[in-house]
Design a protein around this nucleic acid. Structure first.
Lengths: 145, 145
DNA sequence: TACAATTGGTCAGGTTGCTTGATCAGGCCA
DNA sequence: TGGCCTGATCAAGCAACCTGACCAATTGTA
């Protein structure tokens, strides 16, 4: 009962991993990428996505994602191209630089996970992932509000 | 390789659990308690703690913790009493109301963990905790910077 | 085929939760 | 006694979100 509750532990582990991600992205030259940019990098389709969809998927407001997008556009990571079928809409698409950054992030994450597996066993890390995914599925369904 | 990286999954699970905590605290009458107040509730000693220590333990600045403390004091969850041995210092201590809130939070967390264990097995959740604690110990040591 | 309702995106402004820098009073020590 | 260190606070600023208002384009309806 003197155990620290799981949620803060999960949160701290996530924080440490995200900090490592951005430290290494910085070292590889993607120095302007910040955690907040994740709502685009994580959810954007390879063919590009609409702002509304990114907002929906990430759970943030359209305004918040719009700001991130404007920032990433100024930095050359994404471009906005008008949708030919819908004059209101714009497609947000990764530039080549953006795709490289996204690939670097994916690689770094997989390296972190591989390092964990080497330290503590493939089995254990696989089960960590499985358990977290099970819990997430249950919790996401539990409170759809 | 199409797996979503672990850190965002950990983060989302933590978010869902923290949201449940605060929803239930709210239902139990502790409606003013917000996630940001955790830096006091999580780290304060039963005999009370100094602001500087809470800041140190939580990793936030003294100013940030000071603001939270002032807030909790106005709400009646903590009191500041001058340290008799050191005229500069004040001891921050939970009031009775604060102790009840802290106990409620601990109970809710343990209920969440128990629910998880009932759904997916004691074994699995025990291993989740063990793995997360192992990883944390390793990661915390890895980059002391 | 017009008109109403909906939708994609943006502008404006506000709040929250942090930060750094400056200050001040009290304590510690040569 | 004077100089340095430390606990706490004041002030200002900033990043990352939010809500509300709005416009233009599309879609649904009769």
């Amino acid at each position: 009962m003197t155990d620290i509750p799981l949620p803060p532990l999960l949160g701290e582990l996530k924080e440490l991993a995200i900090a490592e991600l951005h430290r290494r992205l910085h070292e590889e030259g993607y120095s302007e990428v910040r955690p907040g940019h994740g709502c685009v990098f994580r959810f954007i389709d390879t063919e590009g996505s609409r702002l509304t969809d990114l907002a929906e998927r990430s759970g943030y407001s359209k305004q918040a994602v719009g700001e991130v997008t404007a920032d990433l556009e100024a930095l050359g990571y994404v471009e906005r191209i008008p949708d030919p079928l819908d004059g209101r809409a714009k497609t947000i698409r990764l530039t080549e630089h953006g795709r490289y950054a996204q690939a670097a992030a994916a690689r770094i994450f997989s390296e972190i996970e591989r390092r964990w597996a080497e330290q503590f066993g493939d089995e254990r890390i696989a089960q960590l992932r499985e358990t977290v995914e099970l819990l997430l599925a249950a919790e996401r369904g539990a409170v759809p509000a």
